[in-house]
C-alpha cells in the first residue's frame, strides 16, 4: 500500500517534470515558428521557482485554502494515471470515471479560491471556465462511452490493452470521427486558443488568476502543469492506444501536445457563447453519429 502511494507520488512528479519541460520546448518551437529565438527550454521551471520565491499577499483563508485543495486534488488525480500498460500505481483503480470525478476537485478548489479573492474578473473567469467545461464534456463523454461500450471495460489499462491487441486498430483510426471530436474536446480542456475564453489576458485580465501573485500563483502553475499532463495522457491512452514502454509514451505525448499548441498559436479566440454553440453543434453531432455508426451498425475499422 505504501509502495503504491510512493509510486503514485512519483507518477505525479514525473508528470510535472515532463509537462514543464515539454511546455518549455513548445515555447521554443512557437518562437521559431514566429522567427524568434525563443526562451530557454527550462524557462517554465525558472518561472515556477521564481514565483515560489516571491512574497505574496492573502485575501482571506478561503483564498489560500482553495489553492492548496486544488493542488492536492490534482496531485491525487495524477496518482491514479497509468503511464504505460505496466506502470500503474493502483492497479484496478485506473477507471476513467475516477479521473472525471477527481479532476472536478481541482477545478472546484480553484473556483472557490478565485471567488474568495473578491475580484469581479475572477468571478467572470470562473463562470466561463465552468461553462466551457459543461460544453466540451458532453461530446467527449459520448465518444468515451462509445469506446467503453466497444471494449467492455472502463479501466484505462484495459482500454489500452484492447487497442494493443493484434487485429485492433487504435481508436483514432478505428473511430475517426470520434477521434476528431476527442481532439477538439482536448483543446477545450487544455484551454488552447479557440477555446481560451476563460484565461483571455487581454479581455478579462487572465480570468481566475487575476488576484494571484507570488506563492499562490506558483502553486497554480504547478497545478496547471499536472492537469495538462492528466488531460493529454487521457487522450493518449483512450485514442492512441497508450504505450507499451515509456519511450513510446513520451513520443505520443509530445506529438499530441505539440499539435494542440501549434493549432492554438494560429487561431484567434472565440467568445464564450460561440464556444458553447460550437461544442453543442458540430462535435456533439459528430459524436452522436460516431456512436450510432459504431454501436448499431458495428462499422468499426
Amino acid at each position: 500500500m505504501i509502495l503504491n502511494i510512493l509510486i503514485g507520488i512519483l507518477v505525479a512528479f514525473f508528470g510535472f517534470v515532463l509537462q514543464t519541460s515539454i511546455g518549455g520546448i513548445n515555447r521554443k518551437i512557437v518562437g521559431r515558428m514566429q522567427k524568434r529565438q525563443g526562451p530557454k527550454w527550462y524557462q517554465e521551471f525558472l518561472d515556477i521557482f521564481k514565483l515560489l520565491s516571491k512574497r505574496s499577499v492573502s485575501h482571506g483563508w478561503i483564498f489560500d485554502f482553495g489553492v492548496i485543495m486544488a493542488l492536492g486534488g490534482i496531485i491525487a488525480t495524477a496518482m491514479f494515471m497509468p503511464i504505460t500498460s505496466n506502470i500503474v500505481a493502483f492497479e484496478g483503480y485506473d477507471n476513467f470515471f475516477i479521473f472525471v470525478y477527481l479532476l472536478a476537485v481541482g477545478m472546484l478548489g480553484m473556483a472557490m479560491s478565485a471567488s474568495g479573492s473578491g475580484n469581479p474578473w475572477a468571478s467572470i473567469g470562473v463562470m466561463r471556465a465552468l461553462t466551457t467545461m459543461l460544453a466540451y464534456e458532453v461530446p467527449f463523454l459520448i465518444v468515451v462511452l462509445t469506446i467503453i461500450n466497444l471494449t467492455g471495460h472502463s479501466s484505462l489499462t484495459e482500454i489500452m490493452m484492447y487497442q494493443q491487441q493484434s487485429g485492433n486498430n487504435i481508436f483514432l483510426i478505428a473511430l475517426p470521427i470520434g477521434g476528431i471530436v476527442g481532439f477538439i474536446a482536448l483543446m477545450g480542456m487544455l484551454g488552447k486558443k479557440p477555446f481560451e475564453t476563460y484565461i483571455a489576458p487581454a479581455e478579462i485580465a487572465s480570468g481566475p488568476m487575476v488576484e494571484y501573485g507570488g506563492k499562490q500563483l506558483g502553486m497554480l502553475f504547478i497545478l496547471h502543469e499536472i492537469s495538462v499532463f492528466i488531460e493529454v495522457s487521457l487522450f493518449v491512452h483512450l485514442f492512441l492506444g497508450g504505450a507499451s514502454n515509456i519511450i513510446e509514451f513520451l513520443i505520443k505525448y509530445f506529438i499530441v501536445y505539440t499539435i494542440a499548441n501549434l493549432i492554438s498559436n494560429v487561431n484567434g479566440r472565440f467568445k464564450i457563447d460561440q464556444v458553447v454553440v460550437f461544442f453543442y453543434k458540430w462535435p456533439l453531432f459528430m459524436a452522436v453519429t460516431q456512436a450510432v455508426i459504431a454501436i448499431y451498425f458495428g462499422w468499426v475499422i
Binding site: R36, Q37, P39, K40, V57, A202, V210, E211, G213
Partner: peptide, 12 residues
C-alpha cells in the same frame, strides 16, 4: 522572450 521576459496581465 529569450531573456525570459514577457507581458503579464495584472500587477499581482
Amino acid at each position: 522572450e529569450r531573456l525570459g521576459m514577457g507581458p503579464m496581465a495584472t500587477p499581482r
